[in-house]
Design a protein around this nucleic acid. Structure first.
Lengths: 150, 150
DNA sequence: ATATTTAAGTTCAAAAAATGAACTTGTCAA
DNA sequence: TTGACAAGTTCATTTTTTGAACTTAAATAT
């Protein structure tokens, strides 16, 4: 497989990477989730070259993850806003956050709150039936089409 | 920030990317989860250049995600095995799988089974208190140290 | 015992991508 | 109407990736 054929691979992980797998992309999305929505905001927060930022914002729009909107009180200034498809990437970033918090930080840095009930959330997967937290070994991916299991 | 300073950023997402954010890395891990554990197995499954594969396997070992083990019944052949730290990346891949299944596939390709109770799992985040599935908007990350919220 | 194949790499030149600085264009504010 | 700022583009340099050929060691076949 070639890297630029990811989008047509028979694997959902590969196809997701075709959208968020380029250098800097996930960090740009992190800024969007933080409501940092402008070109120079991304640049200031991340320090990436403008040409790369420009290219990433373009493909994220093409992939339907971000929408470019004219800033209401300032034409010639733009906001890059997450679409539903983009907001639905939040679990990906939250699981990365949880893993990084556990393994890459001296001490935990984050608490995730559920805004409906106010409780603390461990961004882990739970079994909807028995309610147990899923350990790494306790899930099995079953193939339903031609795609390879995980 | 420079890309190679990710590891010291005050953000768990950034630090996680320092481990899994390079080109091909997540796909190599996907193969490990599929029990494809050998150098030429990675090469055959992914078609990436050997030099890149070699470099990625080295850093994954340095980061404690993979262990290189001599194949018991075949010296001079090696298995790259996920450590606990590596297996704990499974939720990251599962959330990517779920997103890709929803947005990048013609029809769903995967069912995730809980091996303890046998039920189907939607790899989404659930609230441990009210048991509701968390929608994108319903979580809030609260800062506990100097790190920026998500 | 020797030759061949296979696995797991390394090396290196060419191509592609990222980087950083300078330049452009369109608003807004003084 | 001048100056500053936001949002880019352009382009030369550096870094990374790629793909092919080469290396080394162990297993297998002759």
């Amino acid at each position: 497989m070639k890297w630029d054929e990811l989008k047509t691979e028979p694997c959902s992980v590969a196809r997701t990477l075709s959208v968020i797998g380029e250098k800097w992309t996930i960090l740009i999305l992190r800024e969007c989730f933080r409501k940092n929505t402008r070109f120079d905001g991304f640049e200031a927060a991340l320090g990436l070259p403008r040409a790369v930022l420009s290219a990433r914002l373009k493909t994220l729009q093409e992939d339907g993850v971000l929408e470019k909107k004219i800033n209401p009180e300032h034409a010639g200034r733009f906001d890059y806003i997450l679409t539903k498809k983009g907001r639905d990437l939040r679990p990906v970033l939250l699981t990365m956050l949880a893993w990084g918090d556990q393994y890459m930080m001296d001490k935990p840095t984050m608490i995730v709150k559920h805004t409906l009930c106010g409780c603390d959330i461990v961004p882990e997967l739970y079994c909807p039936k028995c309610q147990n937290k899923l350990e790494a070994e306790e899930t099995r991916v079953v193939e339903v089409t031609q795609s390879s299991p995980l």
